[in-house]
Amino acid sequence: MKTQQQVKTKKAELPESNRLTRDDWLDQAFWAVVAGGFENVKVQSIAEKLKVTRGSFYWHFSDHADLMASLLARWKLQQISLDQKLDSQRSGDPVKDLEDVVDAAFTQAGATLENLRFEQALRSLSHQNAEAAHMLAEIDAERMKLFESKFMAIVKDTKKARDLSVLLYLAIVGSYQALSRPVNPPNIRIYLQTLISTYLVQKMATK
């Protein structure tokens, strides 16, 4: 049986590239975006945070552009997976199903609003980056399709479901902007979510 010291020695002998994964680099790139936007993603800075040399980076990515493309692709996959999961949820109560979507939208912002800040940075990037703009258009379309399907189960009217989906999307985007302010009243997230749930979800079920 190997002693603890032998295990530590074995790990120390591993090349840096074997001790880290692509996701380790992508995680640090994500937090770099959260902290300062996409221009803040620098290979040397990430290597320092991971306590490895810059050379380790090239075991996982061909260049900085590959890192950025991989980061965007991972984000897109996460968003699509979440939407598909929410779309497949059918509790038998369409109002609850839509409230679950609203709850997921607020939870998705992240415990420290990290996901919200990443998406805001991505939307800023999309003004100069056609690939990012196209990807965001795809994600927005998927979200709208999800909202429409949930509203349709409540109101049974295609145009009304579409219109309500637009209002819900605007309410969520506006809430994100409010949440991202440097200073906010206490419990602002709960307050905003309750407003949306009360006036855009529950009231629709009584009409």
Rank of each mutant, 00 (worst) to 15 (best):
L170V: 11
R143H: 11
S124G: 15
P182C: 00
A130R: 14
T158D: 15
I139A: 00
R162M: 12
N184A: 09
K150W: 02
K160Y: 02
F151E: 05
Q120I: 08
L122C: 04
S197A: 11
A153P: 10
A133K: 14
T194Q: 13
N184T: 13
G174I: 08
A141Q: 08
K159S: 11
E131C: 07
T194N: 14
M135N: 07
P182Q: 01
K145N: 11
D157L: 00
F147R: 07
N187I: 02
M204K: 13
S126L: 04
S180P: 05
L200M: 03
L167N: 09
K203T: 06
Q193T: 12
T158K: 13
Q193N: 07
Q202P: 06
E138C: 03
Y176L: 12
Y199V: 07
Y191V: 10
V166Y: 13
A132S: 06
L116R: 01
V183G: 03
L122P: 07
I172T: 09
A133Q: 10
P186M: 08
S165G: 01
D140E: 14
I190A: 13
L122S: 02
S175T: 00
D163T: 11
E142K: 10
A132I: 06
R117N: 04
M152A: 06
S124L: 13
T198M: 04
F118E: 01
F147G: 02
D140F: 02
E148I: 10
S180A: 15
A133T: 02
A130F: 08
H134T: 14
T198C: 03
M144D: 11
I188C: 10
E138D: 06
D157R: 04
L179T: 00
D163S: 12
L179N: 06
Q128T: 13
N187G: 08
L164N: 06
E138K: 07
K150C: 07
Y199D: 09
N187E: 09
D163A: 11
L136A: 03
K145F: 04
Q177P: 05
K160S: 09
I139C: 01
L146I: 06
H134F: 12
L192S: 03
A171F: 03
N129C: 05
R181E: 15
E119Q: 11
A178C: 10
L168H: 01
M152T: 13
E148S: 12
I139N: 00
F147Q: 03
L179G: 05
V201Y: 05
E119V: 09
A171N: 04
P182Y: 00
A141Y: 05
M152Q: 13
R181T: 11
M204E: 12
D140H: 08
A121H: 03
V173K: 13
K150Y: 04
F151L: 06
Y176M: 13
T158F: 15
E148H: 14
H127S: 14
R123H: 11
